[in-house]
C-alpha cells in the first residue's frame, strides 16, 4: 500500500470539521421542521396573573345576582297543566249536565215563526176553546191602537150584516 501523498493540494476552510457536526444537525432539524413550531400568538403582559381575580369577580357577581334565565318556561308549564286540567273538568261537567229547556226559553220570534211555517189544522172553534177569549182585549190582537170610531167606520163599510156581529151597545 502506497503511503499518503504528503503534499495534498486541497484545502478546507479553517474550523470546517469542527463545525461540521453542528451544521449537519442544523440542516437535519430544519428538514424535520417543514411546519414551523412558532405560531406568532402574543398576549397582554400579566394576563395570567390577573386571570384569577377576574374569575373570582365574575363568580361573585353571578352568585350575588342570581340570573333568571330568559327562557324559563318551567312556571308556564305548571300554569298550562293547571289550565288544561280545569278545561277538562269543565268539559266533563258540561257534557254530563242535561239542562231542561222550558217554554219560557223560546224566543217570541221563534214561536211566531213556527206558527207561520206549520199548518196547524186548527179551526177557529178549536182555537177559541183554548184561547181565553173573555180575557182578551182588542189591543192584544193589534200592535197599533185603533180608535173605536175608526173600527166602527171600518166595520160599517165592510160588513154586510152588521147585526150578526151582535154588538149590543151599538144597537
Amino acid at each position: 500500500m502506497k503511503p499518503f501523498d504528503k503534499n495534498n493540494p486541497f484545502k478546507a476552510p479553517e474550523g470546517y470539521f469542527k463545525k461540521f457536526d453542528e451544521n449537519l444537525f442544523k440542516k437535519l432539524s430544519s428538514k424535520d421542521l417543514a411546519i414551523p413550531k412558532k405560531e406568532g400568538f402574543k398576549l397582554p403582559n400579566g394576563y395570567f396573573d390577573s386571570l384569577n381575580d377576574k374569575l373570582q369577580e365574575k363568580l361573585n357577581a353571578e352568585q350575588t345576582n342570581k340570573v333568571v334565565p330568559l327562557k324559563s318556561y318551567k312556571k308556564y308549564y305548571y300554569a298550562l297543566a293547571a289550565a288544561a286540567a280545569v278545561l277538562v273538568v269543565a268539559l266533563i261537567v258540561n257534557l254530563n249536565k242535561t239542562e231542561k229547556i222550558g217554554f219560557d226559553d223560546l224566543a217570541q220570534a221563534d214561536i211566531e215563526n213556527y206558527f207561520d211555517k206549520n199548518e196547524l189544522d186548527l179551526t177557529s172553534y178549536e182555537l177559541a176553546e183554548v184561547m181565553p177569549i173573555g180575557e182578551l182585549e182588542m189591543t192584544d190582537m193589534f200592535e197599533s191602537n185603533f180608535s173605536e170610531e175608526n173600527v166602527l167606520d171600518y166595520l160599517n163599510e165592510n160588513t154586510e150584516y152588521l147585526d150578526e156581529l151582535n154588538l149590543e151597545d151599538n144597537e
Binding site: 400568538f41 402574543k42 398576549l43
Partner: peptide
C-alpha cells in the same frame, strides 16, 4: 384578521401556517 391583530406578531410563514 390576524394581520391587524396587535397580539399576533407572526411573520409571513406563521400567517401561511394559520
Amino acid at each position: 384578521n390576524l394581520t391587524a391583530d396587535v397580539y399576533f406578531e407572526g411573520e409571513e410563514i406563521q400567517l401561511k401556517l394559520q
